[in-house]
Design a binder for these strands. Structure first.
Lengths: 204, 204
DNA sequence: GCAAATTAATGATTTATTCAAG
DNA sequence: CTTGAATAAATCATTAATTTGC
C-alpha cells in the first residue's frame, strides 16, 4: 500500500478494517499500551508505527464529529427554512389555516452514530493479547456530541485515564519498536523497546 | 518547589529562568533531541521530565500569542472608539474644521516582543552539549502574529523540522530517562534511554 | 501573623484547524 | 477529495498568590 520510499503511512485494507472495527467497538482514545498492542497486531498486515495508530483514531474521531456536526447543521438549516416558509404561509393565510400550524420546537431525534449495524467477524481480536478495555462496551452508540454536553463520562471512564501519558513528542523513541520486516504479532512475545542513541551534540 | 507527592511539576526558579532564557533566545518548538538535552540539563536543578519541557514551551508560546492578541484587540478597539468620536466631531463641525481631520489609517508601530533587553548571564549554556540550533537567531523579535500571517517562516526554518516526530503519547517511554536522584547534567555522559517493559496483557 | 477562602497562573489534556501527500 | 501528520487553540485541573476575617 505504501511504496518503500513513501513519506506517509497508508493503511492496508485489512489494517483499515480492523481499525474501523475497533473504533466501532467503542475505542476512541486508545491508551499507550493499547496503541502498542494494536500496532503490534496490525504490523502483521504491513508496515505501521504507533503514531499511525494514534493519529488514525484522533482523525477518525474528529472527522466523525465533524460529519455529524455538518449533518445537524444542514438539518437545522433546513428546519429553519421550512419554519420560515411556514411563517410566510402563516402570514399570508393567517385567517384560514391557523390550526394547521407546525410547532417550531426542535425535534432532536437523530443523534448517535450510524455504526454498529454492519459488524463483521473480527473474533480473532479476542485473542489473549488483544482484549482491550474499551471493547467491553461494544455497540454503545452515543455520539461524541453527547460526551461534550455531559462532560467526561461513559466509555472514557472505562479506560484507565491516569495511566495515559499524553503529549507531543517521543515518536522517535517508538520507531524501533515495530518490527518492520517479520510479521511479529502474537507469535513473538513483546519485548522491551530499542531506543535511538542520544547524540551528545546536535548536528551542525 | 514541587512537593514530593505532587501530581504536577512546578519549575524551580532556576529552571524557569533557564527556560525563559531559551525562549527569549528564539526556541519555540524544541525538537525531541533538544527537549532531551534541556531536560537533562534542568534535572540538575530539580525533578523534571521531557514532557514538562515540551508543555512549557507549548504553553508559553501560546500564552504569549494570546497576550499579544489581546493587546492588539484592545488597541484596535480604542482606536475605533477614537475614530468614532472623531467622526461625530466631524459631523458636528464639518464646516469649521475639515482641515484638522485625523487620518484613520492604522498605525502599526508596536509589534514585536518586549523581550531581549534584560538578558542575564547564561553563558554556561554555551557548553558543548547545549548549543541549540535555535539560539543562533537570538533577539530577533518578531511576534507570532506575523508568523501566522506569513505562514511558517523565520526561526522555525532554522530548526530541523523534519526530524521532529510529534504526537500525543509515549511519555511513559521517557519517564525513566531523567535521573531523578543524582543531578546528572553535563558531568554524566548522555546514555541510551531505559524503557518500560511492555506487558502482554492489560490489567483487569 | 495565619489559616480559610478566592482569585490568578500555569501545567496538562483534548479538540479544532491546517498542511500536504496521494 | 480523502486522510495522514502536525500545529494551534481551547479547555480542564491543580498549584501559587492574594485577600479576608479573625
Amino acid at each position: 500500500m505504501s511504496p518503500p520510499g513513501s513519506s506517509r503511512w497508508s493503511p492496508t485494507t485489512e489494517q483499515l478494517m480492523i481499525l474501523e472495527e475497533l473504533y466501532r467497538s467503542g475505542i476512541r482514545t486508545p491508551s499507550a499500551v493499547q496503541i502498542q498492542q494494536i500496532t503490534t497486531h496490525l504490523s502483521f498486515y504491513g508496515r505501521i508505527e504507533g503514531k499511525n495508530v494514534f493519529y488514525w483514531f484522533q482523525n477518525h474521531k474528529a472527522r466523525d464529529r465533524q460529519k455529524l456536526r455538518r449533518k445537524l447543521n444542514k438539518q437545522l438549516q433546513l428546519q429553519q427554512q421550512q419554519q420560515q416558509q411556514q411563517q410566510q404561509l402563516h402570514v399570508h393565510h393567517c385567517q384560514l389555516n391557523h390550526n394547521n400550524m407546525i410547532s417550531n420546537h426542535f425535534v432532536g431525534s437523530t443523534f448517535g452514530y450510524p455504526f454498529g449495524s454492519n459488524a463483521q467477524d473480527f473474533s480473532f481480536f479476542n485473542s489473549p493479547s488483544l482484549l482491550f478495555e474499551g471493547s467491553v462496551s461494544a455497540n454503545t452508540s452515543e455520539g461524541e456530541i453527547n460526551c461534550k454536553w455531559n462532560g467526561y463520562n461513559n466509555q472514557q471512564s472505562l479506560m484507565e485515564k491516569k495511566d495515559i501519558a499524553f503529549s507531543n513528542y517521543g515518536w522517535t523513541l517508538m520507531d524501533n519498536n515495530v518490527n518492520h520486516e517479520a510479521p511479529s504479532c502474537c507469535t513473538k512475545p513483546l519485548k522491551t523497546l530499542d531506543l535511538f542513541p542520544l547524540t551528545t551534540r546536535i548536528k551542525d
